[in-house]
Amino acid sequence: MLAASITSQADLTGLYTSTGVLGLIWYVLVAIALWKVFSKAGWPGILAIIPIVNLFILVKIAGYSAWLGLLFLIPIVNIVFHIIVAFRVGRGFDKGGVFSFFLLFLIPWIGYFIIGFGRAQYTKPV
């Protein structure tokens, strides 16, 4: 009985390790993409590394007050607000609604790479 529980714990540890490594790789890629986006928008790129701060900077890039970033803490409101921020960031980089919805809301790591390393120029949304 004891051997089975040790084996089960080892299996979980292996799962956490591979998930942790993949999560770290994903986070580094997102930070690189956001670094370039922040630099294009006139913000220090180093802020992309800090987990909660990067959301507040995205809200600022979208043209809103950073205080509105607190809306990300409210369960249903955060989804709606994330869509709004994605559309406003897309508009700031002269991207359309389809690009904003699919590549900045649904799969943002690809969208931010396209904006950050592409030719898009930032103009503050009005």
Rank of each mutant, 00 (worst) to 15 (best):
V80M: 08
T13N: 10
I114T: 02
Q121G: 08
I25H: 01
G116F: 07
G97H: 01
V85L: 10
S39A: 13
L68N: 04
T123L: 01
P125F: 05
W43L: 13
F105S: 10
Y122D: 06
D11N: 14
G23R: 00
S39V: 12
W43K: 15
G42L: 07
V53I: 15
G90E: 07
A120E: 14
W67S: 08
L34C: 02
I115F: 05
G116V: 05
G118D: 07
V28H: 02
T17W: 13
A48Y: 00
G23K: 00
A10K: 11
W26F: 15
L58A: 08
I57H: 04
V98R: 12
G63M: 02
M1T: 06
I107K: 00
L24A: 14
L15E: 08
G20C: 07
F99Q: 04
L70W: 09
K60S: 13
V85S: 09
W43E: 14
Y112S: 02
R91N: 15
F101D: 09
A62S: 15
T123V: 09
P125C: 06
F56N: 01
W35P: 01
S8T: 14
F101V: 14
I32R: 04
L70P: 05
Q121Y: 06
V85Y: 07
A3V: 11
T19L: 13
V126D: 12
I25F: 11
R91H: 13
P51T: 06
V126K: 09
V98G: 14
G23W: 02
I46G: 08
L34K: 00
F81S: 03
F102G: 08
Y112A: 02
V77Q: 01
I107R: 00
A10E: 12
W67R: 01
I49R: 00
L58G: 03
S8K: 12
V59I: 07
L106R: 03
G111M: 03
N54W: 03
G63N: 00
G116M: 03
I46N: 07
I49Y: 06
L104I: 11
W43G: 04
G118I: 09
L71V: 14
G23H: 00
F113W: 14
L34P: 05
G96T: 06
S8G: 15
F117T: 10
I84C: 11
I110M: 05
G118F: 11
M1E: 12
Y122V: 10
A66P: 04
L70E: 05
F105L: 12
T19M: 11
W35Q: 02
V53H: 02
A31S: 12
Q9W: 12
